[in-house]
Simulated scan of single mutants.
Amino acid sequence: MEDLSGIYKSYADEVKRFLICLTTNVDLAEELTQETFYQAVKSIDRYNGECKMSVWLCQIAKHTYYNHLKKEKRYSHSSVEQMMEMGLDVPSNAELPEVELARRNTFISLHREIHLLKEPYREIFLLRTSVHLSFKEIGEIFDKSENWARVTFYRAKLKLVERIQGDQDEL
Rank of each mutant, 00 (worst) to 15 (best):
C21I: 09
K52P: 09
N93K: 05
K144F: 07
Y65F: 15
E170C: 08
L101T: 15
L110W: 15
K144E: 12
I20L: 04
E146A: 08
R150F: 07
F18G: 00
V26R: 01
E100G: 01
D167P: 00
M83L: 10
R46A: 11
D89L: 03
K159H: 13
G6E: 13
E50D: 07
Y47Q: 02
H115F: 13
E113I: 08
K70R: 10
E95S: 09
E162V: 12
R163D: 07
F107E: 11
S109N: 11
E137T: 15
S76P: 04
I108Y: 09
K52S: 14
Q59I: 02
H115W: 12
V55D: 05
R17L: 07
F18K: 00
R122Q: 14
F18L: 01
R46L: 08
C51T: 15
V80M: 05
Y65M: 03
G49Q: 06
T152M: 01
C21M: 03
A102Y: 13
A149L: 09
L88N: 10
I114S: 00
G6H: 14
L117A: 06
H132N: 13
S79D: 10
S109C: 07
T36P: 04
T106D: 11
S130P: 00
M1R: 02
Q39W: 02
K159R: 13
E14H: 08
F135A: 00
P120R: 04
V90S: 03
I44S: 06
E50M: 02
L19D: 05
K73M: 12
V151C: 03
H68P: 10
L69N: 07
M86D: 14
D143R: 04
A12H: 13
I164L: 08
E100T: 13
T36H: 00
M83N: 05
F153K: 03
V131D: 10
R17Q: 12
N67Y: 15
V151P: 00
A29E: 09
M86C: 11
H68G: 03
T23K: 00
V90H: 04
L22A: 09
E35M: 01
V99F: 13
R155N: 14
A61E: 06
L57Q: 05
Y11F: 14
L4Q: 08
V90C: 01
N105H: 06
L117T: 12
L88R: 09
R122C: 14
A12N: 08
T33M: 00
E119L: 01
V41H: 05
D143T: 09
Y75F: 15
E170F: 10
E100R: 03
A149Q: 09
G6W: 10
D167C: 06
L32M: 05
D45I: 02
G87N: 12
S134H: 04
E50V: 09
T152V: 09
L4S: 10
F135S: 01
R74K: 06
L158D: 13
E72G: 06
M1Y: 08
Q39Y: 07
Y65P: 06
T129N: 05
V90N: 02
L22N: 04
R17F: 13
R128N: 11
L4H: 07
Q168M: 11
R112N: 12
L117C: 06
E140H: 06
F18R: 02
T24I: 03
Y8V: 07
K73L: 11
Y66H: 06
I44G: 01
L126H: 08
L57G: 03
